[in-house]
Design a protein around this nucleic acid. Structure first.
Lengths: 213, 213
DNA sequence: TACCGTATAGTCGGTTCCTACTATTAGAGA
DNA sequence: TCTCTAATAGTAGGAACCGACTATACGGTA
């Protein structure tokens, strides 16, 4: 009592569709092209997933095999192309993804939920290390942007997602640094948790402005 | 030639460990508690995944069943508690997640990669709709914060991930609005792509400041 | 009191996803 | 010319994940 589920949800499929809008390709070439164009920071390019995704797209008639070539004794390669359905759904899908924000569950958010468990000192130290990594990643990404868009090799629109990611990381870095500061200067109060018969209680902050009462 | 893989990577497992630090619980209660505390925006709480995750944690000796109770004729419930290993790994895992940023692949980033495919008008419109949804979500989250932390019911530290998420959404909203503006005033140039024998070419921007030459 | 919606508690089956591995060839170096 | 590495191209098996479903109890109401 269940049809093969209507939609392919993995975004790697979106990348595949995008590439096949340009020209027919075999999966390995898709992976290589995505890496060449630095799209592998927006899509998780994993050969196992890629072949599965391609098969799923074929099942839904969004793409179809157009030839199987063999180059010398290398394994046989199957070359795929989009269908008309694939072309229209490609655009529809992008539209939908842009319009409707969906809940994501980044690992960082999970860890921040339990920041308290580390205690103030270790938490601040861990966040500081993260801040360093983030800063480095931001710098590297700026370099990439400089020698693609900056040097006129690629139109800005084709790398716009990199700018988007950059802004997200900068925001995360800013939040991280601010939080480190708040931990260190005590403005993020660290309650001590105790268990009573009624359940859990925590100490209230000794308020610097006003009474605790 | 492969041991049962060392680590449970699903962050829902982190939530389970966190709850069991407080007191033994059965899975259904974990889900209910997470929802009560609004932690279901940091962790994807899905009953299917939850039971799988609990089993995985048992396999790795991070938690263990402590009793199986039956209340009337309701299905039997198994109550779990952390082990010592679970307690130390809980802290280690948080530490690791905080220190090292990992690549995430949000759906939005994927869609932005192919923003070009929509054409400027539709792209701007889609982003505008997103901006509306984001603004609404931000407002709702502010309300939640106001009547938990704001009213002193819960210490700020226990909802800190909500502040973190809020900042991320605000940054996304800011980027989205700025990009809409750039599309509309033409400062984000939309190249026209053409296919030649050499491959692909795109029109260069007719630069407003300086010559195109 | 018969019915209905919601809360409680969890199972089942299938799809997706990823890690690890296989196998061949081209080119660089010794 | 032999070997080693990197690139080419993909397979296989299992873990993770999720949606849909099952079944009981409880409280209100028509």
């Amino acid at each position: 009592m269940k049809m093969t589920k209507r939609k392919v949800s993995n975004t790697l499929a979106l990348a595949v569709l995008g590439l096949l809008q340009e020209q027919p390709m075999h999966p390995y070439e898709m992976a290589a092209t995505l890496r060449e164009r630095h799209k592998d920071s927006s899509f998780k390019v994993n050969s196992g997933s890629l072949y599965d995704t391609v098969e799923a797209l074929v099942r839904h008639d969004w793409i179809e095999p157009v030839e199987t070539a063999r180059d010398g004794r290398r394994p046989e390669r199957t070359v795929y192309a989009t269908t008309e359905l694939g072309q229209s759904e490609f655009v529809r899908w992008i539209d939908e993804l842009l319009r409707m924000p969906v809940a994501e569950y980044p690992k960082f958010m999970a860890a921040v939920s339990y920041l308290g468990a580390l205690g103030p000192d270790r938490a601040a130290e861990a966040l500081a290390e993260r801040a360093g990594h983030l800063a480095q990643r931001i710098e590297e990404t700026n370099t990439v942007l400089a020698d693609t868009v900056g040097s006129g090799k690629v139109p800005r629109l084709f790398m716009i997602e990199t700018e988007c990611a950059l802004h997200a990381w900068e925001a995360e870095l800013a939040w991280t640094r601010r939080t480190i500061a708040e931990i260190r200067d005590g403005s993020l109060f660290w309650p001590k948790v105790e268990q009573t018969e009624q359940g859990w209680t925590w100490s209230a902050p000794t308020s610097p402005e006003g009474t605790t009462r």
